[in-house]
């Protein structure tokens, strides 16, 4: 007989309340995770979409990519050794559209590589978000540092840097705009460990992301909220079952006296915990994915099945730990106690 289930059936409202709270907490967690993920995508999709590898910037740049200058000889040496390496530069700037409206963008230029869009001199490929601002293929845009116009050659999906849409331009144009010969960064894709080059410091993709101003601050505060919510959900279970157990000490004692195993009482709590959590999670997963679909265009919300699966597993594990901790007191209950106690 599944006594855990029988108890839920008899005390529906009690378990409904716990279930609703777990549902709300897990929904909030998923929404915030979606937001964290969306923001990080909005902040650095350009970097996040790259394969695993290592970035190199000059040591004296002190982790600030736009102060970095890669020595041309060193760059050539690296490129010779690693044919798939790519040198790139990123600069925040503005494009003026045909109505002379300024659009903030991140200019990106690179040596020949599949990882970054390649354009001819006088052309530009921009992030799709500029399409919504009314910019079309063939439009002629201007930049204050550049005498010639840049023609929109096309759009790319979700390429952002530092919350600005990326604009891929040719190296010649980049050099004219910013008056620099050297590139800022070298990226070598591949799982191999970082290599050392004179005067350069290496960064994994993740480390490089955290050098982007605001990226870390943003992610850290959201991650913190998410972890708090997860801890709270664990405590919810611990406290709920603790209260229920306190009320049932007499009952547990009598059940032990008539010969029920302690492990069966634990299984009862676990059944209840899993039952509630799975229903609550099913609801919050569906709802947050619906939210993912209907979230307003401009809202940086991005929730993947992978994230929800991970969170669900964490919720189940944390709930299990909470319920088990509160159940530890059951082990200490002696059958005798119950008999000496009064009526239930």
């Amino acid at each position: 007989m599944n006594i855990g289930w029988k108890e839920i059936k008899k005390n529906k409202s009690r378990f409904l309340i716990l279930g609703s709270i777990v549902f709300l907490v897990s929904l909030l967690t998923m929404i915030i995770s979606g937001l964290a993920n969306g923001l990080s995508q909005d902040n650095a999709a350009l970097i996040k979409d790259l394969p695993e590898g290592h970035f190199y910037m000059s040591e004296d740049a002190e982790e600030t990519y736009n102060l970095s200058r890669i020595d041309t000889d060193v760059q050539n040496e690296i490129m010779n050794k690693h044919p798939d390496a790519v040198a790139l530069s990123i600069q925040m700037g503005f494009l003026n559209d045909q109505d002379d409206k300024q659009q903030s963008v991140a200019f990106v230029t690179s040596t020949n590589s599949d990882l970054f869009e390649q354009v001819n001199k006088g052309e530009v490929i921009v992030d799709r978000s500029l399409k919504e601002k009314g910019i079309k293929t063939g439009d002629r845009l201007t930049n204050n540092q550049l005498r010639d116009e840049l023609v929109i050659k096309g759009f790319v999906e979700q390429k952002k840097f530092s919350h600005a849409p990326v604009a891929y331009i040719n190296r010649e144009d980049y050099k004219k705009m910013y008056n620099v010969e050297q590139m800022q960064l070298v990226f070598i894709p591949g799982e191999d460990s970082a290599q050392s080059f004179t005067g350069l410091q290496s960064y994994s993709n993740k480390d490089f992301l955290s050098t982007i101003p605001s990226y870390n601050a943003e992610q850290m505060s959201l991650t913190m909220i998410v972890s708090f919510l997860i801890v709270i959900s664990g405590m919810l279970f611990a406290i709920f079952f603790y209260m229920m157990n306190i009320q049932k000490i007499g009952l547990y004692g009598i059940l032990k006296a008539i010969g029920i195993k302690t492990s069966r009482l634990f299984k009862m709590i676990w059944t209840q915990m899993f039952f509630i959590t799975i229903i609550a999670l099913t609801l919050s997963i569906s709802l947050s994915h619906v939210f993912n679909l209907i979230a307003p265009e401009g809202m940086p919300f991005h929730l993947t099945i992978e994230t929800t699966t991970q969170l669900s597993i964490i919720f189940l594990v944390v709930g299990f730990i909470g319920a088990t901790l509160s159940g530890l007191q059951i082990r200490k209950i002696e059958p005798l106690r119950a008999i000496q106690q009064g009526e239930d």
Binding site: K9, K10, L251
Partner: peptide, 13 residues
Amino acid sequence: GFVFQFAHLVPFL
């Protein structure tokens, strides 16, 4: 088998 001063039945069965 056990009987005590109070019935101590399982309230949800």
